[in-house]
Design a protein around this nucleic acid. Structure first.
Lengths: 246, 246
DNA sequence: CGCCGATTTGACTCAGATCAAGGTTTGTGG
DNA sequence: CCACAAACCTTGATCTGAGTCAAATCGGCG
């Protein structure tokens, strides 16, 4: 690949039609004709560096975003200053719905590593929904998914033990890896232990100890940020999915 | 009021235009003309009795609902059978978004007391959104609000102590009472202690003890399900809204 | 009145937090 | 290329908020 081509990549827009994440993202279920319309309004801003904010609590809500590469975390802040991470967003996953209620974001969104996103500007979204019935429908699906995700997390925080939470977290990542046609039993964590702990409502030390326990029990292999799931069945058994075989 | 009239009440539809909850509900921000259209599609089924399900996990999603009177709780169920209550819905509040992702509900919705709801059928929603720009916008606001609510609850479950959680719960109820132009410092809980405990991720005994503590400290007065907030400032101070006067 | 579910209260226990080191990896400037 | 600092991660010891278990009390209601 020539140096010239490499420079061009920055300016090159990946069309929705050709994006390999299209089935997970805005375009899900759309016709080719509809995809062309999408391409016309979807913007692809400069990549975010690690620790760059995509948006902050209080920013006016201008768009919804899809992660194209990397990983973005969203977190809410409380009155007395502590933070709760509410989501880690992988490529193809959407964020920004938190701004829909009042037109102002109520979360911070921060890149965990170098990441790129696609933007769907809200001022165009309204018109586009009129023209593209598929998008209208997809928007509803997206929001429903967000709600369901949050509910799962509520269940996790409200009812599970630390062990179940971490197992559940690993399984969630694993199945999202599979959705993306990546290995579902071997992946890298893009977030530090501290963020996992925050997300799961526990102390860093507990995360660390549980990783050690799981490793001792040969359920997973942990090498710094690299996770290998050795015994998926046992992991599922921990969270109570009692479908061992059967 | 004659007995004849009383019978009619069952059949009488309350129009959105005349509903005193309209500013909290679907109609928020709509013109009179738009409200007439809403009325044409909003259905008002028979009231629910205590412990009736409005819908169940797995039911196909046919409508979104607005509580007109009473109180409805929604809860998710985990693989191993335990439940997490994810919301208590007061008059004017909406529910049913959990069915948007896959067209199937992922929550149970259950009346805590005799309750009535309005239904907005989904098959009409799509068309209606085309015709009524106000509804389209309102739908987005509604979903954003749901997401923000869930995020608040995540913060509560992930980061707060039991004391903070209960204080936060009481303040949330109080401000929702105010929205409805009811007393914000005196109200009845429509849910048993067990449900409060479940919602806040703690044991019933802890709820009971904390009510006793708050009562001893003259922050609230508790008489069975009847709550009187005696010292709003102190309650706010507990959750860390350090705006005590300022 | 007497039963039943909801609530409260007390005593005890424990999962997981906190506190305290120590080890490892990464990045940076000389 | 190395030294040094700053993150990040792990491990051990101790502590505690809130859960669990058990029992009494209350409030309706047939």
């Amino acid at each position: 690949m020539s140096s010239l081509k490499r420079i061009d990549v920055d300016h090159l827009k990946v069309s929705c039609k050709e994006c390999n994440l299209r089935e997970l993202c805005f375009p899900h279920g759309m016709s080719d004709a509809e995809l062309l319309n999408m391409d016309a309004v979807v913007d692809q801003p400069k990549p975010l560096h690690k620790n760059d904010f995509l948006y902050r609590d209080g920013d006016s809500s201008r768009a919804i975003y899809a992660v194209r590469s990397g990983c973005v975390k969203t977190m809410t802040e409380s009155a007395n200053g502590d933070e709760q991470i509410v989501g880690f967003h992988l490529p193809g996953e959407l964020l920004g719905l938190d701004g829909f209620a009042e037109g102002v974001h109520t979360c911070n969104a921060l890149a965990l590593e170098t990441s790129s996103v696609c933007e769907l500007p809200l001022n165009q979204l309204e018109n586009l929904c009129h023209v593209l019935p598929g998008l209208q429908k997809q928007m509803r699906r997206i929001m429903g998914k967000e709600v369901n995700n949050d509910h799962k997390l509520l269940l996790l925080l409200g009812k599970m033990t630390a062990e179940e939470r971490l197992a559940s977290f690993l399984l969630s990542l694993s199945s999202r890896m599979e959705e993306r046609h990546w290995k579902d039993n071997e992946f890298n964590l893009s977030m530090p232990r501290q963020d996992i702990a925050n997300y799961l409502g526990m102390a860093v030390e507990t995360v660390s100890r549980l990783f050690a326990t799981f490793q001792n029990e040969k359920i997973i292999d942990v090498d710094r940020r690299h996770i290998t799931i050795l015994d998926m069945q046992r992991l599922k058994a921990i969270v109570g999915e009692c479908d061992t075989e059967l």
